[in-house]
Design a protein around this nucleic acid. Structure first.
Lengths: 348, 348
DNA sequence: TTGCCCCTTGTGAACGCTCACACATCTGAT
DNA sequence: ATCAGATGTGTGAGCGTTCACAAGGGGCAA
């Protein structure tokens, strides 16, 4: 029980009367082990309570059993410091940890700066000190070709979370943004809305582009004319736009906001003017964060499958680490349209 | 740039014209290195872009540079699966990651089951596979003497997050629960309230006991009679209690709820009966979660310094790992009383 | 019977670091 | 002048795995 040294592969080998290597083969589920030897080894492992030492496995072989998720330092810390928290990080941890645990891996989070030189250096440190078996790149790092190149060069498998980027050939896991925008429009047209505006995010953001496309296409299909208003994901800009709409009287009857912040702004401006939601205005947003769920009234929203995407990314990376080569480039995960209390039938 | 093998300590030693050991001394900031040698080594490290390999460091020496936070599996997964998220985990990650990063360590999260036998086994696996330099135990694991004994036996430093437990001699980091309860009472008495009820949590929970004490003491000091109502941290129980108060007409003019769920229940029951908060009822709760911040009206609350506690725990563990023996048993971190919109002057 | 291949098994070395120790060199006290 | 102690430095071994390779035995075709 209280032995100083922990049980090693040697101990198991001795107990099972085989060699180190045979034990190793059993642990790693390699072929070429007789049923008899395998049984003896497994018995010995169970009896001695042997657990392989991760660091030693890394030293000897090629795997570290570590998957690394890279997030943007500035944005993440800012959210935390502001007391806003990071629902995104929480979701990532959920998906990643569960997926990794199931296969005997571990998930590590690391923050990397946006600035390219620093990013490269920090990535270098991470790669050589931890030697993760796989890397998960999130926005904005997932759009940085230099980082991708660096990983390629060092032969580190990585997966991008986000829409495919033509400049960065890599495995990408993402949500169907265009489809979600389409679903949003369809939900609203089904409620009788025709004048549906898209309070768009930043056009430099790949996801925003996809949403616009989906929105425009769906509006055309429904026979309505699209109305895209350029926001920038910020509360202030959205508030200005909403104010203009409400005050000039030509506001849409339904609004799709590309993120939660902008939806809050609309809700606030509407509230100030006594515009009841959803009686006189329907509002739906992308991003299903705690704020969205707890807002008053709770916002109808598109839920991004964050945990699922990260879990998928982990699975792909672990597959790769274990030698499975076949991999599709692009993996699309389903979104969810959650109807809460801010979308309702159009007032005639 | 694209060398297959990464730069090792040998390479640095050769470049600086010293031995491995001298390089190692410089890396680990050990004494007994001449200024000259140190400078040469540092130059070589910078020039070659050397970064020590964590796994190898673990193999050679005693440290793994890993700090492990242990959370309860069932509770954590349940929160995640229910879409509630884990603000607690997010906060822990913040505090832990920042503290570890600063000192070259890494933070890993692991879920462990509540059931003692499983917990022991899982802990055993974690200890021998990762060999973390330190372990952070959170509720309910922090109250499990067997787990603490196991860690002691295996000589793994650990820190409990939570009030000291007489059965478990160990370093504990916690918040001043009693003080917070006192502050809550003082805030409310300052607003003119005298009939302040404590909607208590589960008395088997150590923190709840401390809060009761603080509450009772503060009430006595203020010359009011305490009124503790036994809840169990659940929404339903709290709703029942609140309903009784409101319907029987002998409700308090201010309520301190021991967690967010119970506060929501009170808010809901009050709302149903048209009891305006804070006009006719003041409400304050422990736990400053997203739901609390976004509720309507936003709840006045006691913020637990979660991130800070974990950061402190990490610091203590890293100190220990690096040989600093002196350690106080108990570390109290300040809470914060955040006054939002559910506490106001007593209506005369 | 011989030869060949496959299946199973074992052996030494290597991974990149730190530990324990040994060895110089330099200082200052005897 | 000699020795003890401090200071700087280097050497071999070892950490617990896996890798690369070699070797033994059985089956089957020639």
């Amino acid at each position: 029980m209280s032995s100083k040294r922990s049980v090693t592969i040697e101990d198991v080998a001795r107990a099972a009367n085989v060699s180190r290597q045979t034990v190793s083969r059993v642990i790693n589920r390699l072929p070429s082990v007789s049923a008899d030897a395998k049984a003896r080894v497994e018995e010995a492992i169970a009896r001695l309570g042997y657990v392989p030492n991760l660091a030693a496995r890394r030293m000897g072989g090629a795997r570290s059993f570590l998957i690394m998720a890279i997030n943007d330092r500035a944005r993440t810390i800012e959210n935390w410091a502001a007391g806003r928290g990071n629902d995104w990080v929480d979701q990532m941890l959920y998906g990643g940890m569960m997926a990794c645990e199931e296969r005997g891996y571990h998930m590590l989070f690391e923050l990397v700066d946006t600035e390219p030189t620093q990013a490269a250096q920090q990535m270098q440190r991470i790669l050589t000190s931890l030697q993760p078996d796989g890397i998960i790149l999130t926005q904005p790092h997932s759009e940085n070709p230099a980082l991708a190149a660096q990983l390629r060069e060092r032969a580190r498998p990585f997966v991008r979370i986000g829409l495919p980027n033509p400049d960065i050939p890599a495995v990408s896991v993402h949500m169907d943004e265009a489809g979600a925008a389409r679903a949003a429009v369809e939900h609203l047209t089904a409620l009788g809305h025709a004048d549906i505006a898209l309070l768009a995010g930043d056009a430099r953001y790949r996801g925003s582009l996809a949403r616009r496309e989906g929105y425009v296409a769906a509006m055309r299909t429904a026979g309505h004319s699209p109305r895209v208003e350029e926001g920038d994901f910020s509360y202030d800009k959205a508030a200005t736009i909403a104010a203009r709409w409400f005050d000039e009287g030509d506001g849409p009857s339904a609004i799709i906001a590309e993120n939660d912040e902008m939806a809050f702004a609309v809700l606030r401006e509407a509230g100030r003017r006594g515009i009841k939601v959803p009686d006189r205005l329907s509002l739906l947003c992308f991003e299903d964060t705690p704020g969205v769920r707890f807002s008053v009234p709770p916002l109808s929203a598109i839920r991004q499958p964050t945990a699922e995407m990260v879990a998928k990314a982990c699975d792909l990376l672990i597959d790769r680490a274990e030698g499975k080569e076949v991999e599709e480039e692009v993996h699309v995960l389903p979104f969810e349209l959650i109807v809460r209390e801010t979308t309702g039938p159009r007032r005639r």
